[in-house]
Amino acid sequence: MKKLNLDYKQLPLIATIILFIIMYAFGSFRYTGFFSSQVFLNLFIDNAFLIIVAVGMTFVILSGGIDLSVGSVIALTSMIAASLIMNAGLSPWIVIPICLLTGTLIGMGQGALIQYFNLQPFIVTLAGMFLARGLAYVISVETIAINHPFFSYMASGRIPIWGDNFISPSVIIAFVVVVIAVFVAHFTKYGRNVYAIGGNEQSALLMGLPVARTKVMIYTVSGFCASLSGLVFTFYMLSGYGLHANGLELDTIAAVVIGGTLLTGGSGYVAGSVVGVMILGIIQTVIVFEGTLSSWWTKIAIGALLLLFIVLQRVIVIRSKTKKGIISQH
């Protein structure tokens, strides 16, 4: 039975995993020091924030929507955190909830607009993107460096795993988020409703599923993930800045797509997005190790990968359509 389930829809995910292995092997053979467990763990440390935001985005894309506001929400979160900690001198235990609440409320507002006024997710989250980044600038156009023991600990804290290898506290946060997300996606009603809406929203409605509530929830969760990611990003950068995470929404969408989630919705896995993030991470690592390559090659490589996976998805959709065509012609 399990074997039957492993059909063409999982092809992108399998391709992603194989690609990751190939890239990792390539890096290991080419560069000395690449094949070390710490380099591997660094992928997680450097991309913990991206994993978190990609998890939220996965649900959005699974439902057939898109959230362009995540990068800006990260920037806004970093600004709020930095200004409240440094300028207002508040305790992190007050600041962190405020940050999370801000992102969550932005997400909820976007979800409500999308659902109740039947606006396109694309355009609403575009407005959210402007709004969040604008608000970040309103707080300050300058970088605010953070100098606070808690943040410093979160930034440089090392949690040993084995031998000399370590991870950062952020990795733990990302890991918890992923585990919860996998559970939600596969073992809760909410998670399944997301898939149903992505498959056929009209049907979901007629099947009596709480489409409105679920859709608002999806964007709320994405907003929450973005602000959580913003905090992790702030730990990582130890500063708040309106230009932080510029264009990150694209990286996130790319990670989700490369991770095998259909952009039309209804098919994909949270775990896939994690692998997608890892692939983006390994591209950067390769470029760092290569030394002579410039950073823009990252963009070109991501673009090429996007192309590869989008065409792959397209082939799958065409294949499943012809298959359906034959079925309906009994």
């Binding site: 694209l250 969408i253 790319a254 410039s294 950073s295 823009w296 090659w297 990252t298 963009k299 070109i300 991501i302 673009g303 090429a304 996007l306 192309l307 989008i310």
Partner: peptide, 12 residues
């Protein structure tokens, strides 16, 4: 989206 990501890289 592909060109949006890659195009800027090409410009750089």
């Amino acid at each position: 989206l592909i060109l949006m990501v890659a195009g800027r890289g090409i410009a750089q």
